[in-house]
Design a protein around this nucleic acid. Structure first.
Length: 926
RNA sequence: GCGGGGGUGGCUGAGCCUGGCCAAAAGCGGCGGACUUAAGAUCCGCUCCUGUAGAGGUUCGAGGGUUCGAAUCCCUUCCCCCGCACCA
């Protein structure tokens, strides 16, 4: 009946409309501390891709799960709507970025609706609206007022193709390519606006330790990015025959190796390098032509300068070398070839001396009394570990860590110094489609002046199609008056990096309409932080670091109580095809739209969620999709086939479904008891897995339950209460992932089949119809461990029956007897598990009722003794008996033979003998 | 080089934290059977080797160790992926 599947298009459309009509996903402003579930908002590129679908299915499923568990949930969506691609697209199509962007947003919003994502659309934001970016400008003002925004000259990464500045993070790979257009990036000197994120470097790195809900990989990436290092700044007097360049600072993490310094090196861009290049042709040539910072070889050129080692007083030769980088440390370093690989390579190449001053620490070395170890041989390779100082005057014999401290303290001009790799955040972009930086450059003497808060937002002028920055060409817009002196002024034409937009958008959802502040403080303090954030690993550093920075700033200066924005973070894996990432350039893209048309959104969602853990990559498989679709088709058929019968037997299905998950099971119907037990076990496992976001395991459980229910429904005379309950549970367990079909089936099961709706009775007038969205999550009061023991017993027993029949070559069994072990064996096992007595057999035999069993007891005792360490508890004998009785129908069905489950007292001794706890005796008659 | 994550049966992929019930879930693929005029769908099994009563053997990248017992813990080693990197 169902090879065509079910009418997913009609089902999905029907419920999308019903949800919208009933505003089921609305989160009222007055709820208290809702569970805040957030997916990283997308750039509106025009179409949803599979990565989006996966991302938002994860948040949607989790949000729905929490909702069914009774939480208020905040699950909003918005648009990262500024950015260069809109500008490029506008140029190509001869339109403007605004229209193009809103077109894209409309399309994508429609696709999200068609996926069934349950967002509170009343909270939708788009960062390109003045109502939003006004608050970027406000935020910029606040940074400026607190001394954390400043304008300065800076060497910046410049993409000649995009004609804009890029952050370091936006420059990719060794080849230094633009992250957007893959064009090689150049360096330029420009006046730029910076936010001083480095002021927060320590807190940003220290607080990572407490982000326990974040993946280790992301935490580590942030630590690396901030790159804090403790070390020492040493001062070297640098001079030559004719000139004195004065004190030059060099940073080192290895002050303990200072006695091993045999040269000093300056970056080609260091001011002294520039100075000496004026008089020294070799240096000039080296800087201009030979220096190759990207190459593997360390290159350098000698100068006529020397640097005085501040500890030893030695005069070291000074080189200009390309492996010294201007933007690392001070752009100058002491070379210690004995204990640094790169210095070693350079010294070997230049024929400089290599001196060992650190020796490996001998075992049990005591710096107080021990003789210093012999210096290692460093002629071939540097010894880079910490150790014990040698050849270091008074410091000889000290351990590295202590020596670093002592040298830093005792050397004139030496300072303990902390270095960071993190740089201030350059937010200036020479582009149109972004937030205008709210500054006016006074033509008089006022300099750069903030636009007053009352005059915000500074709105973008109409788009001008030009090769440079359109804002530069907007002459009328540019010309303004200085807010300070009232004289003529020019607007700042830089716009902000779009990472400013995304660094606080999660706060805007709290009060998206608010017109006099970026967010409602009281509500933000109640609703923040985001409980579960989900997005791609590509944002591990930039977006997440900036968001943490801005949150801390708002905590310090605007009274926000949260110091971290995201409590739990999930970096979802990629959707791949044949093992590689889907991408347009490779042409291996699977269109979500096609999948929705062909199989429906529910199929796409279920397939993705059951394919793998959310954080792992997985391969898209058309076969897997089809298999998922077949599952949904079978489920639909199962519910439809039985709904009518159930409603006859269950007088008020609706009430029964909603009220309670405790159902009465006929004690004389072991099959019903088995199914009821399976239902409970499924709920227990699936709930825990949903909590952990391991949807794949939860769904496997739910699908397994559906299989059990189908078998049960085929069984003669299923208990309608049990079957109805089971179907209700299965539907609810699947509902977060297949919301449309779950609604449909829930309605069918409730005796309000959807075709009634089709005939003109609309959904919300059927007031007694409960949405599964709002249905209570099923509950179970079972011990997961006991449920698993029972499952295992049943599975093992069935497996054993199969094996016997196969191995013994039984063609057609006529009777199968299953006999549970006698009680005394359970008692003996219990004693064996508990006991730590040397002689297990005597411990067991101490029990008179076991001793009475004579040889059988002795023999079983020996078995227990032999396997003593491996023994584990089973279910009690009565529970095993009940579980096997309940599962007998499965064996009967499989082998088409009557199955008798018996207690030991009811069975033949010869058979009973083989029975053990956890392993009933099986006797098959041919 | 540093840091992070991996290597499991024909494939995908769980298990590993908390060792035993693990020859190892699930899906896919393959094989056999039921149903069907047939195909499809659906259902029941099988799918490392041997085995006429639930057994035995060899497996979880490689080698070693701890343990009564290791896919699981420890060490060494090889390979793959990701991030950072001539970072002083």
């Amino acid at each position: 009946m169902s090879q065509e599947g079910y009418d997913h298009t009609a089902v999905e459309k029907r419920w999308q409309e019903a949800w919208a009509d009933a505003s089921v996903y609305r989160t009222p402003d007055d709820v208290t501390d809702p569970t805040y579930v957030l997916g990283m908002y997308p750039y509106p590129s025009g179409k949803l891709h599979m990565g989006h679908v996966r991302n938002y299915t994860i948040t949607d499923a989790y949000a729905r799960f929490r909702r069914m568990r009774g939480d208020d949930v905040l699950h909003p969506m918005g648009w990262d709507a500024f950015g260069l691609p809109a500008e490029n697209a506008a140029k190509e199509r001869d339109t403007n970025p605004r229209d193009w962007t809103f077109d894209c947003i409309d399309t994508m919003r429609g696709q999200m609706r068609s996926m069934g994502f349950g967002y509170d659309w009343d909270r939708e934001i788009a960062t390109c609206t003045p109502e939003y970016y006004e608050w970027n400008q406000w935020l910029f003002r606040r940074f400026y007022e607190e001394g954390l925004a400043e304008r300065r000259d800076a060497e910046v990464n410049w993409c000649p193709d995009c004609e804009t500045v890029l952050a370091d993070e936006q420059v990719e790979g060794e080849a230094e390519l633009c992250w957007r257009c893959d064009h090689p990036v150049e360096q330029r000197e420009l006046e730029q606006w910076f936010l001083r994120i480095t002021e927060y470097a320590d807190e940003l790195i220290d607080a990572i330790d407490d982000l326990e809900g974040w993946p280790d990989s992301v935490r580590q990436m942030q630590r690396n990015w901030i790159g804090r290092q403790y070390g020492t700044t040493l001062t070297f007097e640098v001079g030559g025959p004719e000139t004195d360049h004065g004190a030059v600072e060099a940073f080192t993490t290895r002050a303990d190796t200072v006695y091993g310094a045999t040269f000093f090196a300056l970056a080609p861009g260091h001011p002294i390098s520039e100075t000496i290049a004026e008089a020294d042709a070799a240096v000039r040539t080296f800087i201009d032509e030979e220096a190759d910072p990207e190459g593997d070889e360390p290159n350098g050129v000698a100068t006529d300068l020397t640097a005085k080692n501040p500890v030893t007083g030695a005069e070291l030769p000074v080189f200009v070398a390309d492996f010294v980088l201007s933007d690392v440390g001070t752009g100058a370093l002491m070379g210690v070839p004995g204990h640094d690989d790169r210095d070693h390579a350079f010294a070997s190449k230049m024929g400089l001396p290599i001196e060992p001053v650190i020796a490996p620490k001998p075992d049990g070395y005591d710096p107080e009394s021990g003789d210093p170890p012999a210096p290692p041989d460093v002629s071939e390779a540097a010894f880079t570990d910490d150790g014990v100082l040698v050849n270091s005057d008074d410091y000889t014999g000290m351990e590295s860590a202590a020596a670093r401290e002592a040298i830093t303290e005792e050397t004139a001009g030496a300072e303990p110094t902390t270095q960071y790799r993190l740089r201030d955040w350059g937010i200036s972009r020479q582009r149109y489609w972004g937030t205008p930086i709210p500054v006016v450059h006074c033509h008089g003497d006022c300099g750069s002046v903030l636009v007053p808060e009352a005059e915000l937002p500074v709105e973008l002028p109409a788009f001008i199609n030009t090769t440079g920055n359109p804002l530069d060409a907007a002459e009328e817009w540019k010309a303004t008056t200085c807010p300070s002196c009232g004289g003529p002024g020019t607007r700042e034409t830089d716009t902000m990096d779009t990472f400013v937009d995304s660094s606080w958008y999660f706060l805007r959802y709290v009060s998206p309409e608010l017109s006099d502040a970026p967010f409602d403080s009281d509500r933000a303090n109640d609703w923040m932080p985001v409980d579960q954030y989900v997005g791609g690993i590509e944002h591990a550093v930039m977006h997440l670091l900036y968001s943490r920075f801005v949150t801390k700033f708002l905590a310090d200066y605007e009274g926000l109580t949260a110091r971290e924005p995201f409590t739990n973070l999930l970096a979802q894996g990629m959707v791949q095809l044949d093992g590689s990432k889907m991408s347009k350039s490779k042409g291996n893209v699977v269109s979500p739209q096609r999948i929705v048309e062909e199989y429906g959104a529910d199929t796409a969602r279920l397939f993705m969620m059951q394919a793998a853990q959310p954080e792992r990559d997985f391969d898209w498989s058309e076969e897997g999709v089809r298999s998922t679709y077949r599952f949904l088709t079978r489920l639909t058929a199962l519910v439809e086939d039985h709904a009518e019968a159930l409603s006859e037997h269950v007088p008020d299905a609706t009430a029964a479904l909603d009220e309670d998950d405790l159902i009465w099971v006929d004690p004389d119907d072991p099959t019903a008891a088995y199914v009821a037990g399976e239902i409970d076990a499924t709920v227990a496992v699936a709930t825990a897995e949903y909590d952990d976001l391991t949807f794949n395991v939860a769904l496997r459980e739910a699908q397994g339950l559906v299989g059990t229910l189908r078998s049960y429904a085929d069984h003669e005379e299923p208990d309608p209460a049990v079957l109805g309950h089971g179907l209700s549970v299965a539907i609810r367990l699947l509902a977060p992932v297949i919301p449309h079909l779950a609604e449909e089936l829930y309605a069918t099961l409730s005796g309000k089949p959807a075709n009634v709706v089709d005939d003109g009775v609309d959904v919300d007038s059927a007031a007694d119809h409960p949405f599964v969205v709002d249905a209570p999550w099923p509950t179970a009061d079972v011990d997961r461990e006991a449920a698993e023991l029972r499952r295992r017993l049943v599975a093992n027993t069935r497996e054993d029956v199969r094996q016997i029949i196969e191995v013994a070559g039984i063609e057609d069994p006529t009777a199968i007897d299953v006999v549970v072990a006698p009680d005394w064996k359970y008692d003996a096992l219990e004693i064996a598990v508990e006991s730590d007595a040397d002689n297990l057999i005597s411990a067991i035999m101490a029990e008179s009722h076991i001793r009475e069993q004579g040889d059988a007891a002795a023999s079983y005792g020996q078995d227990l003794q032999a396997e003593r360490e491996a023994l584990s508890r089973t279910l009690p004998g009565d529970a095993e008996y009940e579980a096997l009785r309940a599962a007998a129908w499965l064996i009967e069905r499989e082998f088409d033979a009557p199955v008798t489950v018996a207690r030991a007292s009811e069975a033949d001794d010869a058979v009973v003998r083989k029975a053990e706890p956890g392993r009933p005796a099986i006797d098959i008659t041919e």
